[in-house]
Design a protein around this nucleic acid. Sequence first.
DNA 1: CCGGGCCGATCGAACGCTCGGTGGGCGATT
DNA 2: AATCGCCCACCGAGCGTTCGATCGGCCCGG
Lengths: 191, 191
Amino acid sequence: MKKDERLAQILKHAARVFYEKGYDRASIRDIAREAEMSLAGLYYYFRSKEELLYLVQKQVFSDLLESVRGKLQAVDDPVEKLKVFIHNHLSYFIQNLEEMKVLSHEYECLEGEYHEEIAGIRREYYAVAENLVREIRKRHPTCDVRPRMAVLCLFGMMNWLYTWYRPAKDGGPDSVAEQMTALYLRGLLAG
Amino acid sequence: MKKDERLAQILKHAARVFYEKGYDRASIRDIAREAEMSLAGLYYYFRSKEELLYLVQKQVFSDLLESVRGKLQAVDDPVEKLKVFIHNHLSYFIQNLEEMKVLSHEYECLEGEYHEEIAGIRREYYAVAENLVREIRKRHPTCDVRPRMAVLCLFGMMNWLYTWYRPAKDGGPDSVAEQMTALYLRGLLAG
DNA sequence: CCGGGCCGATCGAACGCTCGGTGGGCGATT
DNA sequence: AATCGCCCACCGAGCGTTCGATCGGCCCGG
């Protein structure tokens, strides 16, 4: 097995432990247990616990950003684009719940360059959504919410998901996305 | 100075440190420094770090619940009541940003009875909001979002605030509440 | 086909440090 | 003299990290 694949496995294990215990309470020993490796053996794949968190966050966030950019290219109308954005975010969130909780909840744990790089991706991702809202405002005069507020409300609605989502109660990604899209877009556009 | 008041002061210091560093990264020694007391001296006022977090969360959450119950009594129409609920939540959030971040972000840090008691208050608070949405659905047939989802989206929008709120950019409590209420209620009621 | 040397991957053990928590005592107030 | 509020000195546990050693597979000269 290649080193990259092995690292990917380890990141998956790490994400699960961070998801369950939180970054600070999770010890490298916990992750070693989960990955069925020795403590010291893990350090062959990363330099520090902080780098491990960085690798988890970077991988999932880059993937998410790439995914939505691909899907947005196929659509023209900004309202439809925003629907695609919301659907993509929620699908990805639900299908990668552990990593996405780690991404949403452990934002302040990284420092220095690690933090800066994740913050950069975050800004890019945010900008995609804000630009869509700006486009919509241009074409729909009834849309009067300030873009910054509108986008932050949207992310709040969506990212809070990790605190309450239960598949049995709330249905699959499509169902969740449909309901949230309806609630949010009617609020954004109606007047 | 009375013991209660001194404890309240200490809780305020603790909330600030928890707010800045997060519960796990904050050490009792940090709190001692902030409160200008010795480590051992603090333990005269609480039994453990976990109890300290519990006291912070319980105090702020009870206060919030009591506050909204008081204000809701003065209103009859459920839509107006929900507006009051949102305004109260956001005002309180912004005026007690440190404690409210600790309440929102450090939910999983308590265990056993401590956790159960905070979870109990949370359920009560949640139930207030959900009952309002149910009332609204009864009287407004165009409201088709499932109450659970509607309420969780609302809390997501509001509680995410601690990750982005900047007074200079986003205005005061009234401004934030007005925009969020508009966005959310139009989405909930429109059809 | 064999042998030795090398290297990637892994491990056990330990280090230095910080953590939450405590036992005993000191001075001031009552 | 007793209680209250507080602090110094300390403890055991657990942390992230490192180090030296090991083991299996691969390459290469004979």
